[in-house]
Amino acid sequence: MSDETRTDGGAVSAAGSDQPAGLLAEIDAYRVALYLGLLTILAFFLIPIESGLVTSFKTSTGVSGTLPFAPPTPEVFTLAKWQTAFDALARGLVNSALYAVPATVISALLGSFAAYGITQSNWKPKYKAPILALFVAGIFIPYQAVLVPLSQFWSMIPLQEALGFVWALGISSDYTGVVELIVTHVAYGLPICTVLFRSYYKNMSEEMIEAARLDGASIRRVYRRIVLPLSGPMFAVVLIYQFTQIWNDLLFTLVLVQTESSTAAPIVLILAGLGQSLEGQDFALRMAGAFIAALPTLAVYIMFGEEFAEGVAT
């Protein structure tokens, strides 16, 4: 019997029988190419991280005698670099948290207040637009442009004398720089926080807020009972963004704290000089310190990851 003849006498098209197989082969080839491309991109981003991680577990001779991305052998494996890095950065971890956490929370709250006032208040649009334009303009001011005015501004503020009652408790006056960093980061982060919250509040149900107003709720009560509980996803976005920016900032700390020998030196300032000596740079120690410094930001991403994804998608 012919391959093109059915048992009931009908004919089967040869081209029709080959079409599904050809389509399947085409789909498989596309998926293979797609996955290979994704794996290549993934390797491109992960190889530097992997190289830094394996380097942190090597001795100094192991770093110079092996490839950067090669895992450490038992002869060159050590945990001493991590212990040394943690001992050197422990003080900086505490100091960075002292200004990064309050600056992040305060800037997020103030940004939420400002965005709520711009979007949900009864102001006329001609008043809202210039204020919003100022916030947007504040986002594009680079750090480098404000370093000199910032230094001059804090030199004119007698903050150290004003906080004399704090230093009387036995706290080092070097922590004046921590207070300055809190205020500076709040002021510099307020524009981006406001713009992010505004985009979120613009999509919020106006009928729900209007119903609360008709029931006699004041603007503060509407914010406290309705807007604030619904702002969780955007708070996660702002907190992660602000904390990462503040924790990793080096320019402001160089201007306001200046030296790693200060009692209030943040972790980024100590990390900048970690592993440097007359004999050269200890790359394993620097890599271990870099991963220790990155752990708090990683923890924040893990804590607010689900809300962050929801806030970005909104």
Rank of each mutant, 00 (worst) to 15 (best):
M1D: 02
T5D: 03
T5Y: 00
R6Y: 08
D8Q: 06
G9S: 07
A11S: 12
A15V: 09
S17P: 05
Q19D: 09
A21E: 08
A21C: 06
L23T: 12
A25G: 13
A25C: 10
E26W: 15
I27R: 14
I27P: 08
D28K: 10
V32S: 12
V32A: 14
A33I: 13
A33M: 10
L34P: 04
L38E: 11
L39R: 11
K58N: 01
K58L: 05
G65Q: 12
T66I: 06
T66A: 10
A70H: 08
P71F: 04
P72D: 03
E75P: 01
V76D: 05
V76L: 07
F77G: 04
A80S: 10
A80F: 00
W82S: 02
D87R: 14
G92D: 07
S96R: 00
V101Y: 02
A103S: 15
S107H: 02
L109C: 09
L110C: 08
G117M: 01
T119S: 09
Q120Y: 07
N122W: 05
K126T: 07
K126F: 11
A129Y: 14
I139G: 02
F140A: 10
I141F: 04
Q144L: 12
V148A: 04
V148H: 02
P158I: 07
L159I: 04
Q160T: 12
Q160N: 09
G164I: 07
W167P: 03
A168V: 07
L169R: 11
G170C: 12
G170M: 11
S173M: 05
V178D: 01
V179C: 04
E180P: 02
L181T: 04
H185A: 07
A187R: 09
P191Q: 06
I192T: 14
C193Y: 00
T194M: 02
L196I: 11
S199P: 09
S199M: 14
Y200L: 11
K202D: 14
K202P: 08
S205D: 12
I209S: 06
A211E: 01
R213I: 07
L214N: 14
I219A: 13
R225F: 15
I226P: 05
V227Y: 02
L228Q: 08
P229S: 10
S231P: 02
M234R: 08
M234S: 09
Y241I: 14
T244F: 05
Q245C: 13
F252N: 06
T253S: 15
T253G: 13
Q258E: 14
Q258A: 15
Q258F: 12
T259G: 07
S262W: 01
T263G: 09
L269W: 03
G275R: 00
S277W: 00
Q281I: 13
A288V: 04
G289Y: 00
F291I: 03
A293C: 11
T297R: 00
I302T: 08
I302N: 04
I302V: 15
M303N: 02
F304K: 01
G305D: 06
E307Q: 11
F308Y: 11
A309S: 11
A309H: 13
A313R: 15
